[in-house]
Amino acid sequence: MSQKILLTSKEVNIILHRLACQLIENHNDFSDSVLIGIQPRGAFLAQRIKFILENSYDVKEVPLGFLDITFFRDDFRRSERLLEASQTTINFLVENKKVIFIDDVLFTGRSISSALSAIQSFGRPSAIELLVLIDRRFSRQLPIQPDYRGRQVDVINNEKVIVCWKENDGEDAIYIKDKDN
């Protein structure tokens, strides 16, 4: 299997702190802002960002929700594999709030397009921003760009970016692998 490490645990930690600081610069105390992790993999990143904001930078009570986009995907009925839905948990109003979508990898932009449709069920935000850990910049199919990015990478179409989280995968690391393996 062809695999190379893109970011180590230490590098991931540094990037997460930088992203948290950028959020503080733009959202200050988060009184009008909410974090929404896009299920499934954006949830891990969103939880980490919330933890860093509250425990390293003393931001109080950052609202965090999780959004499942399964039934809003444009390929929902086209996929041969059975899609499994995750749970949506948004226990606050998004009406007139600044929503920060959080996802691990921005690839084609279709997941974010689905998230934009899905969030409308919860109200009308005053603004929506996007934070991603990895931006695969040459893979976009829709005109969607992140407001906050951890690392921009150029990978070819037969490669896949794998984000590993300690809570789920036993380690914090990001790899590039061949899709065939």
Rank of each mutant, 00 (worst) to 15 (best):
K4L: 14
Q141N: 15
K97R: 12
L67S: 09
D169R: 14
N168P: 00
R124L: 14
I52A: 00
E129G: 09
A118W: 04
D32R: 11
D29Q: 12
E84S: 06
V105I: 04
G37W: 05
I112L: 10
L82A: 14
P125E: 08
I162S: 04
I112Q: 00
A20G: 14
R151N: 06
I14W: 00
F72H: 08
D180Q: 12
P143Q: 11
R73H: 07
I174W: 02
P125N: 10
G42C: 13
Q87A: 09
Y148G: 01
K4T: 06
F92L: 03
Q120R: 13
R81P: 00
A43H: 14
F66V: 10
A43T: 08
G150M: 12
N96A: 11
R140H: 13
D180F: 13
L116C: 04
L106C: 01
A173V: 11
V155H: 08
R137E: 10
Y175D: 03
P125R: 08
G150Q: 04
R73V: 05
S139T: 15
G37K: 09
L6S: 02
L106E: 08
I128A: 07
L53Q: 11
I52V: 14
E167G: 05
I14Y: 07
D172I: 06
L16R: 05
Y57I: 10
R124P: 07
W165K: 05
F30Y: 10
D104T: 13
V34H: 03
E25S: 14
L7H: 00
I119R: 00
I144Q: 04
V132D: 07
T70K: 08
V99C: 05
I102L: 13
I5K: 09
K177G: 14
I52S: 00
L45C: 10
F66E: 05
